[in-house]
Simulated scan of single mutants.
Amino acid sequence: MTAFWKANQRKLAPWLFLAPGLLMFAVYVIGPIFESMWISLYDWDGLGEARWIGTANYVELFDDDAFYTSLKNNVIWLVLYMLAVPAGLLIAIFLNQTITGIRIYKSLFFFPFVISQVVVGLMFSWFYAPDFGLFYKLIEVFTGQGIAILAEDRFVTYGIIAAGLWPQIAYVMILYLTGLNNVAPDQVEAARLDGAKGWRMLWYVILPQLRPATFIAVVVTVIGALRSFDLVSIMTDGGPFGSSRVLSFYMYEQALSEYGYRMGYGAAIAVVLFAIMMVFISGFIWKMWRDETER
């Protein structure tokens, strides 16, 4: 055994360090994923006896208007949440300068990242509140009539997304600030000598070196958009009339709230949400791997 360890120490040592993390990942991530898939094939209230129904939950799901409303809202979340990536990049480029008071600016832009999503939801609920909310008052001043954003099914999803974008942009900004610290200064100087500046410098010199940060920013933004539960729960509880539901909230509503206790149906929604998430993330990973192998 000692001879085997000495001969393979370099190969085995990394796996020994990784073993605790891999074990936790398998128990708390991989295991529950497969368990959710299994539960989705049952009719179960979470306490009594589970009854096998096969794919009946999925058949019901794709004939459920509330599911399509939630799916549509998730698509809107996904599209608009991607605005966090260019916005975070532009703010990071601004904060990467050495100007007077830059630390104060960094603190102000960093602030949304460190506060709880619950606090963000409450702040924006007051911001949109009829009669006394700042946004309501501003709209009233300019148009003569205020708009109760969270009570209008036409606007409620966009209002919640705006609340979510505030901390998400701060998160992306931090990722890009870290990436900008690793940009090779010699390449920047060489580009300046060749006459590159402004957008050309950004597009041809800076952005190629920020690919890892961009990949992480896109992945966490996609995940954040698809698992948007807390703001919906805090700000509207899925209302008005279920118009602001997203898949993660609808999953909770069906499986764990007083309206449902349908664990199998909730698990089916979770499986669909997981599949959508994996399509996007797998696509990003494949593209990044292809770009790396072509270099």
Rank of each mutant, 00 (worst) to 15 (best):
G54D: 02
D230T: 15
F215E: 01
V29M: 09
I76D: 00
Q187A: 05
F111L: 12
I33R: 05
W38H: 09
A151R: 11
F67S: 08
R262L: 00
T55K: 06
Y28E: 09
K11D: 10
E292K: 14
A3L: 11
G260C: 08
F17Q: 06
Q117E: 12
I139Y: 06
Y81C: 12
L89D: 07
W5Q: 12
V79Y: 13
L90W: 10
F124V: 02
E140F: 11
D64H: 01
Q117Y: 12
V75Y: 08
F142L: 06
A148S: 08
M37K: 04
D194S: 10
V172M: 07
T69F: 00
R227Q: 10
A26T: 13
T221F: 07
L23G: 14
F109D: 06
A213T: 10
I276D: 05
F124I: 01
G224N: 05
L256T: 01
M235V: 14
W77E: 00
V120P: 00
G31W: 15
R262Y: 00
I33A: 03
V218N: 06
L61G: 03
V141Y: 15
L210H: 02
G260D: 09
N96E: 03
Y42K: 14
Y171N: 04
S244N: 03
A225N: 04
S244W: 00
Y265I: 01
L193M: 14
T100D: 10
M251W: 03
E292C: 12
I39F: 15
W5R: 14
R192T: 04
V183F: 04
G31H: 09
R51A: 06
Y204Q: 08
D45N: 14
L122K: 00
I93S: 03
D43K: 11
R103V: 05
L210W: 04
I276S: 04
L122Q: 05
V205K: 13
E253W: 15
T2P: 02
R262I: 01
W77P: 00
V279D: 02
F34L: 11
G146P: 15
G238K: 01
F4A: 15
I169C: 03
G198C: 12
G146F: 15
G31F: 13
T293P: 14
W44A: 03
L180T: 08
V232L: 11
I281F: 01
M251C: 04
M278P: 05
N8Y: 14
W126G: 07
T221A: 08
V272L: 02
W286K: 14
L273A: 12
M24Y: 09
L207K: 09
L18T: 11
M173C: 08
F94Y: 12
R295W: 15
V141H: 13
G242E: 02
R154M: 09
V218P: 02
